[in-house]
C-alpha cells in the first residue's frame, strides 16, 4: 500500500511543479488563455486525449465492460474516436482561424452578438461544472480506495493537485501537464495488459472461457450480457450506436475538446492532431476494455465492477506496474479536471466579466488569475460539501453541451444563411430541449426509449430554434462578412509542402483502420466463433 501512496504522491507533486514552471513564461492573457497560439502537435494531441479520457473512461466504462457490456462499450469507443476528424475539419480549424480566446468568443464574433456570448458561456459553465464535479468525485474516490484516507481529505488533495498550476499557468500549464499525464496513462494502459492476459491464462484461453461463460453469458458476444441493460441484442446494439454518435458529437464540438485547437500553432496542426488524437483514443480505450474483460476471467467476484482495474493493479501486476497503472488512472482524472477548471475560469473572465478588461496586459492577467482562483474555490466548496443539488448538476453530464452547441456550431461555419437570431434560439432550444426531458425522466423514473434520448430531443429542438430564429430575423450583412472571412485561407497557411504532409496522414489513418479491423477479426471474432462452435 505504501508504495502506491508514495508513487501517486510523487506524481501529483511533479504535476504541480511542472505546471507552475510552465506558468513562468506566461506574459499576457494570450499566453494564459490560448498558450500564445504556438502549441505543436504533441501538446494538442496530448491535451485532446487527456481532457477527453477521465475517470469516466478508466473506472466507469471499464466497470460496464466488467459487468457484461464489452461490445457495447467497444462500439461507443470506436464511434466516438472518429469525432476528432469530423470535428477538426468542420469546426476546429475554423475557430482557430477566428483568432479568439474561447469558444463563446467565437460565437460572439461570428454573429456580433453579446447575448449569444452570454448564453454560450452559461451553457458551457453549467455543463463543464457538471462534468468536472463528477471527475473530481472519481479522482477522490480512487484516492480513498488507494490511500485509505477520508474522502473529504482526498477531495482537497485532488483539488490542490490541479488548481495550483491551472490558476497560475492557465492553458500553458494545462497543455504541458495534460501531455505528460496522457503519456503516463498511455504507458499504464499498455504495460498492464500483458500481466492481465498472462493471469487470465493467455489470450486464446481467456477469449475461449469468456465466450462460454455461464456466470455472465454473452459477456463478449455482440449481444452483450442480456441481464445488464436491455433484454435483446438488437436493443443493446442500437444503444451502443446511438451513444457512440452522441459522444462523437461531444468530441466534435464540446469546449473541452475544441478549445484545444485554439492553441495550435497553425491549421495544419489542428488537422494532423485530429488524426493522432483519434488513433490515440482508440488505442487507450481498446487496451482498457480488453483488460477489464480479461480481469473478469481472472476474478469474477469483484463487487464494485468499476474498481476492477484498481484490483488488477494491486493484485495481478508487479508493484511498479501497478503503481504506474494507478498513477495513470489518477492522471486521467486530474488532467480532465485541470482542463475543465481552466475552461470555466477562462469563460468567466474572458466572456462574462468582459467589461473588466483594461489596457494593461499585466492587470488583465492578474484579473484572469483571480477569476480562475475564485472559480477554483467555488468548485472546491461544491465538491467538498457535495450538496444534494449537485447530484442534479452531475446527472446532466457532458452531453448537454453537445445538444445545445452541436447544430449551431457546425452551421455557424457552413451556413451563410445562419442569422444571429437563429444561432441564439438554436442554442437555447437545444439546451432546454435536452435538460427538460432529462429532468423529467429522472424525476418520474421513466426510461425513455433509445430514439427519444434527451440528447436527440435537444438536437431536434435546436434545429427548430435555428429555423424559427432565421425566419424571425434574417441574416445581417456583418454576419455574412464574418462567414466569408472564415472561409478565406490565411496566407500563412499556404505551403505546398505542409499541405502534402497533412494530406498524407489520410493514408496513415486508412492503414490504421485496416489494422484495427484485422486486430478485431484475428484477436476477437475468429477465436470467439471457434469457441462457441465447440
Amino acid at each position: 500500500m505504501t508504495a502506491y501512496i508514495i508513487g501517486i504522491s510523487i506524481a501529483l507533486v511533479l504535476f504541480i511543479i511542472i505546471g507552475v514552471i510552465a506558468g513562468r513564461s506566461v506574459r499576457d492573457t494570450n499566453d494564459y488563455y490560448v498558450a500564445g497560439r504556438r502549441a505543436p502537435i504533441i501538446l494538442i494531441v496530448g491535451s485532446l486525449i487527456a481532457s477527453f479520457l477521465s475517470t469516466g473512461a478508466f473506472l466507469g466504462d471499464t466497470g460496464e465492460v466488467y459487468a457484461g457490456f464489452f461490445m457495447g462499450i467497444v462500439i461507443v469507443g470506436i464511434l466516438q474516436a472518429s469525432g476528432y476528424v469530423y470535428g477538426a475539419n468542420l469546426f476546429g480549424k475554423y475557430i482557430r482561424r477566428a483568432q479568439v480566446n474561447t469558444v463563446p468568443e467565437y460565437f460572439a464574433k461570428r454573429f456580433s452578438s453579446k447575448r449569444l456570448r452570454i448564453l454560450a458561456s452559461v451553457t458551457l459553465i453549467f455543463a463543464v461544472t457538471a462534468y468536472m464535479l463528477s471527475t473530481m468525485q472519481g479522482v477522490s474516490t480512487l484516492m480513498t480506495v488507494i490511500t485509505g484516507l477520508d474522502y473529504k481529505w482526498c477531495v482537497i488533495i485532488a483539488w490542490l493537485s490541479f488548481t495550483i498550476f491551472t490558476v497560475y499557468s492557465g492553458s500553458k500549464g494545462v497543455l504541458i501537464t495534460d501531455t505528460i499525464m496522457f503519456l503516463i496513462f498511455l504507458v499504464a494502459a499498455l504495460t498492464g495488459i500483458p500481466y492481465i492476459v498472462k493471469a487470465a491464462g493467455g489470450w486464446s484461453e481467456a477469449i475461449n472461457a469468456l465466450a462460454q461463460s455461464t456466470t455472465r453469458p454473452g459477456i463478449i458476444a455482440w449481444t452483450n450480457n442480456l441481464d445488464y441493460m436491455y433484454p435483446t441484442g438488437g436493443q443493446n446494439l442500437l444503444w451502443a450506436i446511438v451513444y457512440g454518435i452522441v459522444w462523437a458529437i461531444v468530441v466534435m464540438v464540446s469546449p473541452w475538446q475544441t478549445s484545444r485547437y485554439l492553441m495550435a500553432k497553425d491549421e495544419h496542426t489542428v488537422q494532423r492532431s485530429s488524426i493522432w488524437a483519434s488513433i490515440g483514443v482508440v488505442i487507450v480505450t481498446t487496451a482498457l476494455y480488453f483488460s477489464s474483460v480479461f480481469i473478469y476471467k481472472i476474478n469474477p467476484y469483484i463487487t464494485d465492477s468499476s474498481t476492477n482495474l484498481i484490483w488488477a493493479a494491486m493484485n495481478v501486476m508487479p508493484m511498479i506496474i501497478g503503481v504506474v497503472l494507478l498513477t495513470g488512472i489518477l492522471s486521467a482524472g486530474v488532467s480532465s479536471a485541470s482542463t475543465f477548471l481552466s475552461l470555466i475560469g477562462s469563460t468567466l473572465t474572458n466572456d462574462i466579466l468582459v467589461n473588466k478588461k483594461t489596457d494593461s496586459p499585466k492587470k488583465n492577467l492578474r484579473i484572469s488569475r483571480i477569476g480562475m482562483g475564485v472559480v477554483g474555490v467555488i468548485v472546491l466548496v461544491l465538491a467538498f460539501f457535495n450538496p444534494p443539488q449537485i447530484f442534479w448538476i452531475m446527472y446532466f453530464g457532458g452531453t448537454v453541451i453537445a445538444s445545445a452547441w452541436g447544430v449551431v456550431a457546425i452551421t455557424s461555419v457552413w451556413s451563410k444563411k445562419m442569422s444571429e437570431s437563429g444561432a441564439f434560439w438554436g442554442m437555447l432550444f437545444g439546451f432546454i430541449g435536452c435538460v427538460i426531458p432529462k429532468t423529467y425522466s429522472a424525476l418520474s423514473g421513466i426510461t425513455l426509449p433509445i430514439y427519444l434520448d434527451p440528447f436527440f430531443i435537444g438536437i431536434v429542438m435546436s434545429v427548430i430554434g435555428i429555423l424559427v430564429g432565421n425566419k424571425v430575423k434574417k441574416v445581417s450583412i456583418t454576419a455574412i462578412a464574418e462567414y466569408e472571412k472564415l472561409h478565406v485561407r490565411p496566407e500563412s497557411e499556404k505551403d505546398p509542402q505542409n499541405d502534402r504532409i497533412t494530406y498524407r496522414l489520410m493514408y496513415i489513418y486508412i492503414i490504421f483502420g485496416i489494422l484495427l479491423g484485422l486486430f478485431f477479426v484475428i484477436a476477437y471474432a475468429l477465436p470467439y466463433m471457434k469457441a462457441i462452435s465447440k
Binding site: 488537422q271 493514408y507 466463433m529
Partner: peptide, 30 residues
C-alpha cells in the same frame, strides 16, 4: 455478427479517412 462488427470497425475509420482527405484538399482551395 462479431465478424461483421470487427470488419465494420475498420471500415468506419477508412470512411473517416476519406472524409479527412477530401476536407484537406477542399481546404487548400479556400
Amino acid at each position: 455478427m462479431e465478424l461483421v462488427l470487427s470488419i465494420a470497425f475498420g471500415a468506419w475509420f477508412i470512411i473517416a479517412a476519406i472524409f479527412y482527405g477530401y476536407m484537406v484538399r477542399r481546404g487548400e482551395k479556400e
